[in-house]
Amino acid sequence: MTATANADREADFERTIEHHDRIEPRDWMPEKYRATVIRQVAQHAHSEIIGMQPEGNWITRAPSLRRKAILLAKVQDEAGHGLYLYSACETLGVSRGELTDKLISGKQKYSSIFNYPTLSYADVGTIGWLVDGAAICNQVPLCRTSYGPYGRAMIRVCKEESFHQRQGYELLMTMMSGTDEQRAMVQESVDRFWWPALMMFGPPDADSPNTAQSMAWGIKRDTNDDLRQKFVDMSVPQAEALGVTLPDPELAWNEERGHHDFGQPDWDEFAAVVSGSGPCNAQRIAHRKRAHDEGAWVREAALAFAAKGTDL
């Protein structure tokens, strides 16, 4: 490839980004763009797959058949979301096996929120309301991300997340109309998940070194702090309607800004959880590794069967 042809390809790429057009798998792209999209989509896919665990924990102990069917459908959706995203990631030339290895070996991350335990059934509701609610805030703008397959996967994911959030909120409403003990369970659950949910948007903009380049390339569409603000503004009236208190003494409407002021999450805790010292990091990865190892014979047997042909 001559220097001129290289410059042409780069100009093509820049022009596509500038016009808010999509980059497609076989287009030329800068290596750093490719690496950034792989990192972000892989982390997103891993989050969906690890995210099956905290709620999957409660499937066998759902309080009714209705709740059990809902929770099963929800956890199955998380698996589906992981698969859409792994497929999108693979279009960039990385294999499924590599991605699984990097998750299990800790070389790629997943959302810090899934390193917190689920201690009561109310957590199923809180995760739907707050965690999936935060995920929706993050994901809706990503439907317009510059990498085509990622954006298309996000459109499918977003359609399904709405069910996740609503089933969670409805579960909490049901508990809030129950006994004092049930209401206390909801409040206790919200107290535990509020701050970790705010951390899902990532560090403050000033400490997020990748944001500027990712936004210039249209991979990310909004900054971490803007999305966090949007989430707080959305959640406040929902908490009021539910009758729970969000555990932040600094939370107050700011007339001048037209937004809620709120306190800062404990960023030291966030750093510790991201670097592997959260309450459930080791357990989540060990579980994923066990499932992968124990499934090895199934993957091998299916390949062997396929190799024999279908005329048995």
Binding site: Q76, G80, L83, Y84, P149, F305
Partner: peptide, 20 residues
């Protein structure tokens, strides 16, 4: 076109596509 998936053979591809 809606996306892609891995399957050992054609029949499994259809079944996985149904689920995914």
């Amino acid at each position: 076109h809606v996306g892609s998936l891995h399957a050992a053979d054609d029949e499994m591809a259809l079944r996985h596509a149904r689920d995914v």
